[in-house]
């Protein structure tokens, strides 16, 4: 089976002075899927996206974007992509509507009907000058421009930063529609719920390196689930099973984590203990993520200078 990648990045490196911003990063976005891109501030998400946009030049590694070279073929590739930055800066004396038109014209696919449709959905007044827009409204300008385009690949860098919960809902719909139209999306985010809801695959990075990537299902499969049971008998026997960890017995309630491979053995043992109730929870994305970022690790990452 051959897969086509909208984005294929292998071993990407980038330095800013003495700071190593990217250190062998891998990232793949399959065509027609939504890929989540997770990592704290300063871990290299925006740098990666800027390299893919041809704004920065990689020092090493390979990057392929829609079959082309993101630096050499920038202008041609940019007709096929759209980008929403985390902090959108606009021309203060132009209106939102003018800005969307200008961005659409630059790409060459301005479609006013689509623009009007998305303006209505994001509830954005296009006659106001950008100067008077809040952060959320500036974000909406860039989102409307991106979704209304015919771009095959959308780069969304923390796009829901300034949006209220209602607008986050609209955003979620729009991403789902984009996928239904066969477009690919790279969504960098801090918000686990958003990524869990939207993304087919997830890449977690730390200090400019990929530490985890795959489908959410795969990632979960490799990790331990948390099991909580109510037992009449003594759970001590469980502790002996290979693959059971963190067992805590509190009266009738017992909880432990279990490697997925050990699950059949654990269930057999459990049945013998006469469980009255059983809940098994797969690891949340947040747990997967925090496994790579203890509180201390996260604090260190803030020290890494942004470009």
């Amino acid at each position: 089976m051959t897969t086509t990648f909208a984005v294929d990045v292998r071993g990407l490196t980038k330095r800013f002075g003495t700071t190593r911003a990217l250190d062998g990063l891998n990232l793949q976005v399959e065509a027609g899927t939504v890929a989540g891109f997770l990592g704290p501030n300063g871990s290299g998400k925006s740098t990666t996206i800027r390299i893919l946009l041809g704004l920065l030049r990689a020092d090493g590694g390979e990057a392929t974007l829609l079959g082309g070279d993101p630096w050499r073929d920038a202008v041609q590739l940019h007709r096929r992509i759209a980008y929403v930055a985390g902090d959108v800066t606009l021309w203060p004396n132009l209106t939102g509507g003018q800005t969307i038109d200008i961005l659409g014209s630059l790409r060459g696919d301005l479609d006013r009907d689509r623009v009007d449709d998305f303006l209505a959905r994001f509830d954005l007044d296009p006659t106001k000058k950008a100067r008077s827009y809040s952060k959320g409204n500036r974000q909406k300008v860039a989102l409307v421009a991106a979704f209304a385009s015919r771009a095959e690949l959308l780069f969304l860098d923390e796009p829901t930063n300034g949006l209220d919960p209602l607008m986050e809902g609209v955003f979620t719909e729009c991403v789902a529609e984009a996928r239904a139209e066969g477009r690919s999306v790279l969504l960098s985010s801090h918000i686990f719920a958003e990524v869990e809801k939207l993304c087919d695959t997830v890449t977690i990075i730390r200090d400019g390196r990929t530490v985890e990537s795959g489908t959410l299902k795969d990632l979960r499969h490799l990790k331990r689930s948390t099991v909580t049971v109510t037992l009449d008998s003594d759970p001590a026997a469980l502790e002996a099973i290979d693959g059971v960890h963190d067992l805590i017995a509190d009266g009738g309630h017992t909880s432990f984590t279990v490697d997925s491979v050990a699950l059949p053995r654990v269930l057999t043992a459990l049945a013998a203990l006469g469980p009255r109730d059983l809940v098994s929870t797969p690891p949340s994305l947040e747990e997967l993520f925090l496994r790579h970022y203890g509180v201390h690790a996260a604090a260190d990452d803030h020290e890494v200078a942004r470009p």
Binding site: R50, L53, G54, L55, A74, V75, Q76, H78, R79, I81, Y83, A85, D87, V88, T89, L90, W91, L103, L106, R107, G108, A142, F155
Partner: peptide
């Protein structure tokens, strides 16, 4: 300096 080139240079113009 204002950060507006990001959105322009990532459009289809050299």
């Amino acid at each position: 300096a204002a950060g507006r080139t990001e959105i322009q240079w990532s459009s289809a113009i050299s």
